[in-house]
C-alpha cells in the first residue's frame, strides 16, 4: 500500500532523513517510533504530499506522490501533531468542509460526517465552535477530520497527545476498530499505545531506520532475546564473577545487590542462575525474568546508533 524507497530529505546541510526504505501492507497498523528530531514528522509530511523529498520515491496505492498527488491525497487522512482546525467554525461545518475538500461527493458528505462524529464521540459538541472546546475535544475533532473522508490510509502523528486516560483508551479502541479496514501509520511517544495497537514497529533514529519488525521479533532480537534480573543480600560481586562463567550467559551487569544477567535460552538461564545464587549462599531475595519491553528496545536502539 505504501512503498518508500531511498527517501532522503535535507534541510540545508542537515539530513533530516537519510535513505529510508520501508513498505506498509494494506490493512496493517504500523507504529512509527523515534526520539524527537529523528525525522518521523518529515517522513509523514512527505508521504502525505505536504513536502517534497530531496531524493527518493514514495508510492501510495501504486501512485507516485509527486506524479499523481491528487490520487494519493484522496486516499490519505492525516492528523498532524497540531490538529489543523478552524477555531471560528462549528464542528460539523468544519467536518463537512474537510469532507468536500477531500473530494467526497455531496450526496455522501452528511453520512460520512455523522459517522466521523459518532466514531470520535463528538455528538455532544457537534454544534459548538471549535475554539471553545477543550484540548481533548480538539484532538478528537482533529482525528475526526482525518477519518471523515473514509480514507484508505490514516497517518496519525501523536493522536493521543493532551487526552486524559479515559479518552486515550477510547482512541485506542477506535484505532482497533479502524484496523483492517484502514492502513494506519501511527507516530507516538507513548510506547504502551504502540504495544496496544500496532502489529509492526519501525524505529527511526537520526533519519535512519534502526529497527523494523514485529514487537515480539524486536523483543527477541534485543541482546540475544532475554535476561534475568536478581536481587541478593550479599556476595554480589562474587556471584557476578561466577555467573560470567556459566554457559549461555553473555554479560552480567551489577548495580549494588541487583544483578542483570543477559544470556540465551530462557529457561536454562533461569535454572542456572538460581542454582548458582543458592550455591554461593548469596541470599537470593528476588529473581525475575522480564520480557524486554518496547521501552527497553526503544532506549537500546536509539542510544546505540
Amino acid at each position: 500500500m505504501i512503498e518508500i524507497s531511498n527517501l532522503t530529505k535535507n534541510y540545508g546541510d542537515r539530513k533530516a532523513i537519510d535513505s529510508l526504505n520501508f513498505t506498509v501492507k494494506k490493512g496493517e497498523v504500523v507504529g512509527f517510533l523515534g526520539p524527537n528530531g529523528a525525522g518521523k514528522t518529515t517522513t509523514m509530511k512527505i508521504i502525505t504530499g505536504f513536502m517534497a523529498p530531496t531524493s527518493g520515491q514514495v508510492k501510495v496505492a501504486g501512485f507516485d506522490v509527486f506524479e499523481n498527488p491528487y490520487e494519493v491525497k484522496r486516499r490519505i487522512g492525516y492528523l498532524p501533531e497540531t490538529p489543523p482546525l478552524y477555531g471560528d467554525m462549528v464542528v460539523t461545518d468544519f467536518l463537512e468542509f474537510v469532507a468536500k475538500l477531500k473530494g467526497v461527493e455531496d450526496s455522501r458528505v452528511n453520512q460520512l460526517v455523522a459517522r466521523a462524529v459518532e466514531k470520535t464521540q463528538l455528538g455532544d459538541v457537534r454544534h459548538r465552535l471549535i475554539q471553545n472546546l477543550s484540548k481533548g475535544y480538539r484532538q478528537r475533532v482533529g482525528l475526526a477530520q482525518a477519518i471523515v473522508s473514509d480514507p484508505e490510509i490514516l497517518i496519525l502523528d501523536e493522536p493521543t497527545v493532551g487526552l486524559d486516560p479515559r479518552q486515550v483508551a477510547e482512541i485506542r479502541t477506535l484505532l482497533q476498530e479502524l484496523r483492517g479496514s484502514h492502513t494506519i501509520i501511527l507516530s507516538t511517544h507513548i510506547l504502551p499505545e504502540v504495544q496496544a495497537t500496532c502489529e509492526r514497529v519501525i524505529i527511526i533514529n537520526r533519519g535512519r531506520i534502526v529497527a523494523e519488525d514485529t514487537l515480539s521479533g524486536l523483543s527477541n532480537r534485543l541482546r540475544g532475546g532475554s535476561y534475568v534480573q536478581l536481587r541478593v543480600r550479599r556476595n554480589s560481586s562474587e556471584l557476578a564473577q561466577a555467573l560470567k562463567a556459566v554457559g549461555g550467559v553473555t554479560s552480567v551487569e551489577i548495580n549494588g545487590n541487583n544483578l542483570k544477567v543477559h544470556g540465551t535460552g530462557t529457561e536454562e538461564l533461569i535454572e542456572a542462575v538460581s542454582e548458582l545464587a543458592v550455591a554461593k549462599r548469596a541470599g537470593l531475595v528476588e529473581l525475575s525474568h522480564p520480557e524486554a519491553g518496547l521501552e527497553d528496545i526503544f532506549i537500546e536502539l536509539t542510544t546505540q546508533h
Binding site: 504530499g49 491525497k73 492525516y78 497540531t82 489543523p84 477555531g87 474537510v98 473530494g103
Partner: peptide, 13 residues
C-alpha cells in the same frame, strides 16, 4: 499560524 495550512496542502487541491 493555526496549522490549518497543513490541511489545505495535504488535500487533493
Amino acid at each position: 499560524k493555526m496549522r490549518s495550512y497543513d490541511l489545505l496542502l495535504t488535500s487533493p487541491i
